[in-house]
Design a protein around this nucleic acid. Sequence first.
RNA 1: GCGAAUGUGGCGAAAUUGGUAUACGCGCUGGAUUUAGGUUCCAGUGGGGCGACCCGUGAGAGUUCGAGUCUCUCCAUUCGCACCA
Length: 911
Amino acid sequence: MMEEHYQPQAVEQEAQQSWEKTGVFRAAEDPSRDKFYCLSMFPYPSGRLHMGHVRNYTIGDVISRYQRMRGKNVMQPMGWDAFGLPAENAAMQNNVAPAAWTYANADYMRDQLKSLGLAIDWSRELATCKPEYYRWEQWLFTRLFEKGLIYKKTAPVNWDPVDHTVLANEQVIDGRGWRSGAVVEKRDIPMYFMRITAYAEELLAELDRLPGWPEQVKTMQRNWIGKSYGCEVHFPIAPPLPPGEGWGEGSVLKVYTTRPDTLMGATYVAVAAEHPLALAAAQGNPELTAFIEECKHGGTAEADLATMEKKGMPTGRFVIHPLNGEKLPVWVANYVLWGYGEGAVMAVPAHDERDFEFANTYALPVIQVLYRKTIGLATDASAGFHDGSGYGGGHAGGAGYGDGTGGSALETPFEQKHWQDWYAAKDDLMILVSSGKYSGLTHSQAFDAIAADLQAKNLGRKRTQFRLRDWGISRQRYWGCPIPIIHCPTCGDVPVPEDQLPVVLPEDVKIDVGSPIKKMPSFYQTACPLCGRAAERETDTMDTFVESSWYYARYACPDSGDAMLDERARYWLPVDQYIGGIEHAILHLLYARFFHKLMRDVGLVHCDEPFTNLLTQGMVVAPTFLRESADGKKHYFNPAEVDVKLDERGRPLGATLKADGRPVTIGGTEKMSKSKNNGVDPQSLIDQYGADTARLFTMFASPPDQSLEWSDSGVEGAFRFLKRLWKQVYGHWAEGAAPALDKTTLNDAQKNLRRQAHETLRKVTDDYGRRLTFNTAIAANMELLNALAKFDDTSANGRAVRQEALELTVLMLAPIVPHLCRTLWRELGHAEDVAVAKWPAVDETALVQDTIDLVVQVNGKLRGKIGIAPDAGRESIEAAALADANVQRHLEGQPPKKVIVVPGKLINIVV
RNA sequence: GCGAAUGUGGCGAAAUUGGUAUACGCGCUGGAUUUAGGUUCCAGUGGGGCGACCCGUGAGAGUUCGAGUCUCUCCAUUCGCACCA
């Protein structure tokens, strides 16, 4: 007996209990079937689901359910990205241990996820903070350490001089610590690095073999890896350094540049404040010492460094220009970054905007050496010679980023082709002037000639360079995976042996400032695995990006106790569809690709890339409402606390606070956040309307890769549609079982409805399978339901046609609103759960039309429409178009100059 | 600063390969049903014009028989920038 009215709570509860009981979403390896591994980025257990989660997991669920209906062996897992900074902050605020806080949050959020009706195999659930997970991360670390793919070096961090802690970039606000307010300093500390640069070439090249990734993400990764083609240039130091002042490279200052053709325009050389030459020059120079000290203030974030005012100071030292022998001053400049390569650049103010700005400020000479062929004389650096690649890829950088990024030999044809491409763009534009024997050469000729001369003098060579830097993974925090290293006074850094893994992080701790395990002898006191004498454990933990770089593989065999991955990973990997926020386009996705190659090279996985298809979802945004107090402080109100008044055409007039009826300012539409108080709790939405309405609204409001704007009335619209669908099926059900369809005796209205139903199916299949645009799939079904509502034919064939159309609608919407469709599918007379129903096939015979509409244009403007047989020839189309009265009027008796016929679409008559 | 994207009615959006701009939904207006509110249903809804028609996809130029879509310049907004996840 079907209920007359749609009651989401009852429908959803029954469906979720049934799915749990039958275990229909449990995934088992089955080599006889095509697998489909669908993965959404796992959540950080922050406390409650937010709308971004709902959106992410609904997208993944729709794809999973669709692929299951297509007959694929689908696996959709879920887990917890459980280590991280917020747990430590919450621990300090609420006096609870990070572990307890994290597990409680995961428990709550798991229930929330289940109430969304996701087709997840919960038996594969994992949490990265569990020793049975992170022990394998520690195991891989020790393997990589032994292979030399992990090494130790010092690197700068943000140091809070008041709290005596290392700060994340996020915790540095305007150059000050977020809690102490103290001016942050850069401080060098020893850290472990993963040699991602050893894989730079492969990470770059394989982007070309990822057709299932968005072009924009591949472009961002290419630019991030940043391969450039340039030259290493050596400037001899003059006068030669006194004994003991060198730094291992002899008496030359090395720089890397992508523009050796402009070398004759170099007027000074600039080094970073941390450069040994700067430090040596500062000895006995209080002014320079003070300047170098000043450069240490502020955080390490690149965006801050790149936007700060350019400052510098002469070192009093000079170098010799390698080609013309001129003496050039060496400056210390805050815009030269020590973390990058040699930390020294050659400055060509005439042809680089930053050098130009710096030279202007400090009255340094500017020598123009390029002539713009097509336009004429360039007057300053901003005239467009700049190659746009910035200091990272421009002429900063140096002889390898620390370790592992030496230049390549430039011998293969593949390499030669890339060098040619690098030259080509600039050759049409410029020619050298005022450059001695190089004057008159093009960019590429000068590049080669200067490189050859430098090589002959042994003062430089052609070289490629990556912008990508090695990945520093040490964190001075507690709530993370312990780095499995033992520091022995005699044996040095010793990896923890396999039989002593995991190094378990103590969970029962009290948190104040700093990591508790650094003050816990029971944790760090140990014996050296090699010599047995007293030694100390490393107390740093790993970057949480390490855990999230391989979890996708562990889902294949989450219970494997003998190995990081077992043979089940071979069946499930790679991930067929990965879904997550666009904010992860570079870091997470690059690290995961890197880790996949690391695991491949130790024989754990057998493919080259982890994610075959990638969908990057947009943000969830909502309007903001605020009042500004007299002192300029902004107080934000939640959209739920506010009434918005509209005029008679629906334009917003203003908004008032419900509590006091007084006006509030309508701010911009921004990403849902705590600070703007514009978040909408998905739980209240699920409680009020049910999960299906929440799912339908988030899928309908915009395509998945664009931002999604929250709208209360949009949610009501979604709910309304589900009620109408229920009502249609109920009305049909109440008439009793429909007779079988007789395709041979259909009237026009019946044929039209069938055609629309099958055209919708064709479109929706494409939307789900290829385009991943669920909003248009829903819109097409709304149109079909509108047509069904107008179709009031109660004849036998009419009811048969309606039965077919309703069945198709229910099947097409099942991936998006699975609970509702499960009930409707049963009421339409099917015993199986719609979750395992077969995706329907388009009936091509239903699509055949006797006549089609053709648009007639005169001079590109719409002037009429003609109905014509779909197989009509060009001449009969032309004749029919010219016969149209309105077309005749616009031709005004003139003969057509040209007639363009686009078959099946339009005809354009040009006069 | 550098890299990537986005910009279409009052609003969210559609137009998939250069071919009818605004599908679908929201909102709004009018009407029906209802004791009232809500619900539900029907009709209308880019701007201008009595009309034939004209204008219209952030701004400006270009290519084309034809441009929301392609090219160039500019503006605005958003995301990322290596220790937030």
